Amino acid sequence: MLEGLPPNGASHVMRVDVPEHQARVIAEYLGESFDPAEVATSAFEIEDRAEGSGWAVEAYFAEAPDEEGVRELIALISPEAAAAAVFSTLDKKDWVAASLEGLAPVAIGRFVVHGSHDRDRIGGGSTIGIEIEAALAFGTGHHGTTKGCLAAIAATGKRRRPGRTLDVGTGTGVLGMGAALLFRTPVLASDIDRVAVATARENARANHAAPFIRFLHAPGLGAGEFRAGGPYDLILANILLAPLKGIARPLRPLLAKGGTVVLSGLLPSHANAALAAYRAQGLYLKRRRTIEGWTTLELTADGSRPRR
């Protein structure tokens, strides 16, 4: 996983080797603690180590960091990791290669999400490659929420082919593109952020998914375009708990009979609160996935008994 990308120029780097569960938490915590325009963090597996496999965290800073301040943040998760952190400097020519080393392709079912640096390594056949640039932090496929949603999309395709898909909070467009490329049916992808919509539209063009996807800049689900494009056999919403609860009521009339709703952006402790909001709208739990500390819910209105 890679969070953010600092500006060009000399970059300072912090590295520490830690167990996998600590690596992911430290990288996300540091990523949330600094301006993403100034700091990038990555957590990745170290291969071919003589003493066996392991994980590392690297944080790249556009300016020289406050080393003690960074250690204090890491110490909140692991004092041992804070003491072991090593700081150094990278030249501009080394920065991009170093940052991309930790951003390996991610395979979820038939999907392989990758950066342009791995374009030539992605095989053909039944593989569906989705190329997202590493500079786009959330939605590169390396986050547990994106993985959970792509797994849910793949599972939906095994049961039935959705005629129409709605992607709420599309971000980089990775989920909408996944549905479009797998099902080859219409997708409406919306986001509250104009920049996200423009970025997702460009990504769809680059991935040859644009003919299937219509993009919409809109907050919530109140715009008439949502109703005009529905009902939807598959609705995807990878956002956060508060907005997920807020769209529960207007989302329900947009769902086609027998359709599936996929919710993510949820910590495990938040999942039941989201589920309660949708149960109040007559939706039931089909499957719950928790990947890398994030929960994805698959819901339906078919009357099935809810699962825990």
Rank of each mutant, 00 (worst) to 15 (best):
S190E: 08
L251E: 08
G115P: 05
A40V: 05
R71N: 06
V96Y: 05
E292V: 10
L240H: 09
G102H: 07
V86S: 11
R121K: 15
A82S: 09
G220D: 01
T146N: 08
R121A: 13
V39R: 01
C149I: 10
D35T: 09
Y284I: 03
L267M: 09
T295I: 05
G282S: 02
L76I: 08
V174D: 11
V70C: 13
G303F: 07
L216F: 01
G31W: 04
D120F: 00
I74T: 14
V195K: 11
G123I: 06
R287G: 01
I77K: 14
L255W: 02
N8P: 14
G222L: 11
F87P: 01
L299C: 00
L30R: 03
A135R: 15
L255K: 00
S116L: 04
A274I: 09
A107R: 15
R160D: 14
R249L: 10
V16W: 04
R252W: 02
R249Q: 13
T295C: 04
H217K: 12
S269Q: 09
E292W: 09
S126A: 13
A56Q: 13
L251D: 08
A27S: 15
R49G: 09
L136T: 06
R279D: 07
R194L: 15
V112I: 15
A56G: 00
A200C: 06
L150S: 03
R214D: 13
F111R: 01
T41I: 07
A228W: 09
G222H: 06
D191N: 12
H270S: 13
S99N: 15
A50M: 15
G282C: 02
A206W: 00
G259D: 03
G4C: 02
N203W: 07
R252V: 04
S116D: 14
F61C: 06
R201V: 03
T145W: 06
A223K: 04
D91L: 14
A198T: 11
Y60P: 02
P162G: 00
P7K: 12
I46C: 14
G163A: 09
V195I: 15
T199F: 04
R160K: 14
D48M: 14
E3M: 14
L103P: 09
S116C: 12
A84T: 07
